[in-house]
């Protein structure tokens, strides 16, 4: 019996059908013949480009957190808030559960994701596995669905429209930084991070 390297096989995550892997051309998407789930996409972004995107996202994330997001005005009084201002306000208003949810999905998980990715990609540029590669890849897999910055941007938009009826609404730098961050997240959406397993080798192997 011929032994095929396990890297050459692809198992559909949605229905367990096994495929022999094929190199994909630019723009090609491999789809499962049984359940039509996407098996694999052509990964058009090089490691350097991914690293550049992650670093840009990190800079934008800092801006998005440092600056106020929106200012409201009422009869000459003004009130603004940053992301952390919002998290603290919810904590003080007896909604600690929501405060913690927002802190994790909008701050800690996105930050952890960007820092981890930056670290892994920095080493992956030379084909190496960063120290802590294995637990970090597993962590990235688990926090993936729990980063919600793009939902927050839409939420800010809804809040603006709601507040607009009663107040003067002035957008602040934070909201622009968030808009750019959302664009970067969209560009990154097609990236399958599992490719890092194949693009890097263990230092001693």
């Amino acid at each position: 019996m011929a032994i095929i390297s396990s890297d050459a096989l692809l198992i559909c995550e949605h229905c367990d059908t096994v495929y022999r892997r094929r190199l994909l051309a630019r723009g090609e998407v491999a789809q499962c013949a049984r359940c039509h789930a996407v098996l694999e996409r052509h990964q058009g972004l090089s490691i350097n480009v991914m690293l550049a995107l992650v670093l840009t996202a990190l800079i934008m994330f800092v801006q998005a957190n440092v600056w106020p997001i929106i200012t409201l005005g009422l009869n000459g009084q003004y009130s603004d808030s940053t992301l952390w201002g919002m998290i603290i306000a919810m904590w003080r208003q007896q909604a600690q559960v929501v405060s913690v949810l927002a802190a994790f999905t909008l701050f800690f998980f996105p930050l952890l994701k960007m820092l981890t990715l930056g670290w892994l990609l920095w080493f992956a540029r030379s084909g190496r596995r960063a120290p802590g590669f294995m637990p970090m890849m597993v962590t990235l897999h688990y926090i993936g669905p729990w980063t919600m910055s793009e939902v927050f941007v839409l939420g800010a938009l809804v809040a603006i429209v709601k507040a607009h009826v009663y107040f003067d609404v002035l957008p602040d730098p934070g909201i622009y930084a968030y808009a750019v961050l959302t664009l970067l997240i969209t560009v990154f959406a097609g990236v399958d991070l599992r490719q890092l397993w194949e693009l890097t080798t263990e230092p001693n192997a």
């Binding site: 009130s79 603290i88 919810m90 405060s99 800010a156 507040a163």
Partner: peptide, 9 residues
Amino acid sequence: FVVSLLTAL
């Protein structure tokens, strides 16, 4: 998130 932002603002 809408409620949280409005609360803060």
